[in-house]
Amino acid sequence: MALAFDLDGPTGDAMLSGAIWDRPAYFSLGGYGPWRGLDRILRLLAERAVPATFFVPAWVVEHWPAQCRRIVEAGHEVGHHGYRHERYWDLSSSAQRAVIERSQEIFDRELGGTAVGFRTPSGDWRPETPDLLSAMGFSYSSSMRGDDRPYLHPCGLVEIPARSEMDDYASFAYTRNPDWPSGGSRIASYRATLDSWTREFDGYHAEGLCLTTIFHPKVIGTPGRAALLARWIDHMSAAGGVWFATCREVARWWRR
């Protein structure tokens, strides 16, 4: 079980376009992640002695360095997630390389080490991206959706696939201006979502697979949803025979 969180904060399309600088409320909703949600998640992980991986745009590390250092100090892993949550699909190889180099420098300076793990912001990458990642020293990616256990990309990069049904955006995220979901779909039922996640874990457990999550502290880190997350982790712990690990540990084991 490789719990993983994307600590996007206010990065993303509205920051990349500059629109966010006229939208303090939209910024504040993103800021809730590193400012409040992260602390709540770190606390519940510590209480349960469960490790996790946090994929963090380096811009968030620059603006909330003390918060991000707490992730590392607690023994969790920090992975690459763009500088400002760039869409790798839109970037040339040299632009991808520049984003990674800039972000790794910030990780090294602020967190005392560079990332070995990569999760594509907004999902898609360019066909050449996995080779680039291998060449730049990454050991794994957690970007694809097409399996329920790790596998190797042709270049040797380990992939730890994540699934959309384990993405808290699909159930809970809700923003206005820009509207997300664009059609105004409802915020899902908490109890029904916990039931879905529990059934999914039970299936992975029964089949002996590898589950990871695409949880966002600004989404899952509200007081009530963090309580759901705690109940879900308690259910998984009680199931027995589960290896809770960071993505880095899973990748190392898979490679061996």
Binding site: D179, P181, S182, G183, G184, S185, R186, I187, S189, Y190, R191, A192, T222, P223, G224, R225, A226, A227, L228
Partner: peptide
Amino acid sequence: IPPGSPRIAPTGDVLDNWVTEFDAYHA
């Protein structure tokens, strides 16, 4: 309204969401 015509949320589920959040805010 909303533009994608999503289903109306079940009333009891919304109560559960609010109670879950409230209990955590209170704690």
